[in-house]
């Protein structure tokens, strides 16, 4: 369960893979795993993440390295998304824009074995163009399909040796959903504790959804650097 290091953990993510990457902005972004993916040189990737990178680190660095062919996200444009902005305007990256709730639910569906679902979000908008719609009990819905990953890179707070995860505050965001939706789920955590050290009532992501764990100790979690 416990990988030796981040590079070993991401080995096996191949060219052309679809990679789910957790985080809402910087909160919950698994920067060590993303850096390892960048070092691996895997290219032609499809990345699924809420944003398209901030500043020059983490996801932004992976984009800057030219390893991402397409990004599926809800909110690419931000004050510090200059790496994505440049690639997009140069036609060097493909964008599929998905409403944030649909992004989450499409991955949830993938992880739960749901073939597709009807959702009211986006009815009558350009993001629903070309999609099947249906009226159910007087309300209109759009048919949405699951998003599956070949790999998920997520950040949690703590893991036990059974792979159970707990998160920290709003850094939880997409982690628990992405963990269910990929063939291989890799979690970056601040510490790994013995099985039994996490109260079973408090486990957020059960270990069945987690394949590899990488411990990346942080100085005094919760304190701004």
């Amino acid at each position: 369960m416990i990988a030796v290091d981040a590079d070993a953990a991401v080995a096996g993510i191949s060219d052309g893979a679809t990679v789910l990457i957790g985080g809402f902005g910087a909160a919950g972004q698994p920067v060590e795993l993303i850096d390892a993916l960048r070092r691996s040189g895997a290219g032609d990737l499809t990345v699924v993440s809420n944003n398209a990178g901030n500043g020059d680190e983490g996801l932004a660095a992976l984009l800057a390295a030219g390893q991402v062919r397409k990004i599926i996200c809800s909110y690419p444009r931000q004050a510090d998304s200059w790496v994505f902005d440049g690639l997009y305007r140069a036609g060097k990256i493909e964008l599929e824009l998905v409403p944030q709730g649909n992004l989450a639910e499409r991955m949830r569906a993938a992880g739960a074995g749901i073939g597709a679902f009807f959702c009211p979000t986006g009815v009558g908008t350009v993001l629903a163009e070309g999609k099947e719609t249906r009226s159910i009990d007087g309300r209109d819905y759009v048919l949405e399909y699951p998003i599956r990953g070949d790999a998920a890179l997520i950040k949690a707070f703590r893991a036990d040796t059974a792979g159970n995860l707990v998160y920290r505050k709003t850094a939880r965001n997409f982690g628990p959903v992405m963990a269910t939706a990929a063939s291989v789920t890799i979690a970056e955590v601040t510490e790994v504790v013995p099985a039994g050290a996490i109260d079973p009532e408090c486990v957020v992501t059960p270990g069945i959804f987690v394949d590899r764990v990488v411990a990346v100790p942080e100085p005094a979690a919760g304190v701004a650097s």
């Binding site: 902005g25 910087a26 989450a104 639910e105 919760g222």
Partner: peptide, 29 residues
């Protein structure tokens, strides 16, 4: 300021007594 505690605008915020955290699928549900 806690980098793990932000709002939808990615600005640092605080929690109130009785607060709860949940993942994105629950949040949009």
């Amino acid at each position: 300021i806690d980098p793990d505690l932000t709002n939808a605008g990615k600005m640092p915020v605080t929690e109130t007594p009785g607060a709860s955290y949940f993942h994105q699928a629950d949040s949009f549900a």
